[in-house]
Simulated scan of single mutants.
Amino acid sequence: MITDPAVIDELIRQFHFLQCADADFVRHFFGSTKVIHLPADQPICQQGMQCSHLALVIEGTARIYKIGENGREITLYRIGPGESCILTASCIMSQKPFPAFAVSEQPIQAVIISTSDVVRWSNSEQAWRDYLFRLISERLSDVISVVEEVAFRRVDRRLAGYLLQNTDNVSNRMQVTHQSIAHDLGTSREVVSRILKDFEQQGLISITRGAITLEDRDHLNEKSTE
Results as ranks from 00 to 15, higher is better:
Glu73Leu: 09
Val35Tyr: 01
Ala151Met: 11
Gln46Val: 09
Tyr131Ser: 07
Gln165Asn: 14
Leu164Val: 12
Ser141Leu: 14
Lys34Ile: 09
Asp168Gln: 01
Val57Gly: 03
Glu226Ala: 13
Ala21Lys: 05
Gln126Ser: 14
Arg217Val: 06
Val155Met: 06
Arg120Glu: 14
Glu69Ile: 15
Asp184Tyr: 01
Gly186Val: 04
Cys45His: 15
Ala62Glu: 15
Glu190Ala: 15
Ser180Gly: 14
Val7Thr: 15
Gly71Ala: 00
Gln106Ile: 03
Cys85Lys: 01
Ser122Gln: 08
Ser141Lys: 11
Asp184Gly: 10
Ile79Lys: 00
Lys96Met: 10
Val146Arg: 05
Ala6Ser: 12
Gly60Glu: 02
Glu226Met: 13
Arg153Met: 10
Ile79Tyr: 01
Leu196Ser: 04
Gly203Lys: 02
Ser171Asp: 13
Gly82Gln: 00
Gln42Gly: 06
Thr187Asn: 02
His183Tyr: 10
Ala89Ser: 07
Pro43Glu: 01
Arg173Gly: 09
Lys66Asp: 09
Gln42Ser: 09
Cys51Phe: 07
Gly203Glu: 00
Gln42Asn: 07
Ile8Ser: 00
Val118Phe: 02
His183Val: 13
Thr61Asn: 04
Ser90Met: 10
Gln19Ser: 08
Ala211Leu: 06
Ala55Asn: 12
Thr88Ala: 15
His183Phe: 09
Pro97His: 03
Leu87Ala: 07
Gln126Gly: 10
Ser90Lys: 13
Glu69His: 11
Ile144Asp: 13
Leu220Gln: 02
Ser52Pro: 06
Trp121Ile: 04
Glu148Gly: 08
Thr187Ala: 07
Val176Asp: 03
Cys91Met: 00
Ile36Pro: 06
Asp156Tyr: 11
Val26Gln: 03
Ala62Cys: 14
Leu164Arg: 00
Gly161Tyr: 00
Ser114Phe: 02
Val150Thr: 14
Arg78Leu: 09
Gly71Arg: 00
Leu135Glu: 03
Thr225Ile: 12
Arg157Asp: 07
Ser224Gly: 07
Val146Leu: 00
Ile108Ala: 03
Val170Tyr: 09
Ile144Tyr: 11
Leu204Gln: 03
Leu87Gly: 11
His219Ile: 12
Leu140Asp: 13
Ile64Lys: 05
Ala160Tyr: 00
Ile67Arg: 11
Gln201Tyr: 07
Gly161Arg: 03
Val35Pro: 03
Gln201Asp: 15
Val192Arg: 02
Leu38Thr: 07
Gln106Tyr: 02
Ser94His: 06
Ile108Glu: 00
Leu220Asp: 00
Gln106Val: 09
Ser104Leu: 07
Arg189Cys: 07
Val170Ser: 13
Ala55Met: 09
Val7Gln: 04
Gln106Phe: 02
Ser137Arg: 12
Cys20Leu: 12
Asn169Met: 13
Ile58Gln: 05
Glu190Cys: 13
Leu140Thr: 15
Arg194Cys: 04
Gln175Arg: 15
Gly48Cys: 08
Val111Leu: 04
Leu159Ser: 04
Ala21Arg: 05
Asp142Ala: 11
Pro39Gly: 10
Asp41Asn: 14
Thr167Tyr: 02
Ser114Lys: 05
Ala89Thr: 05
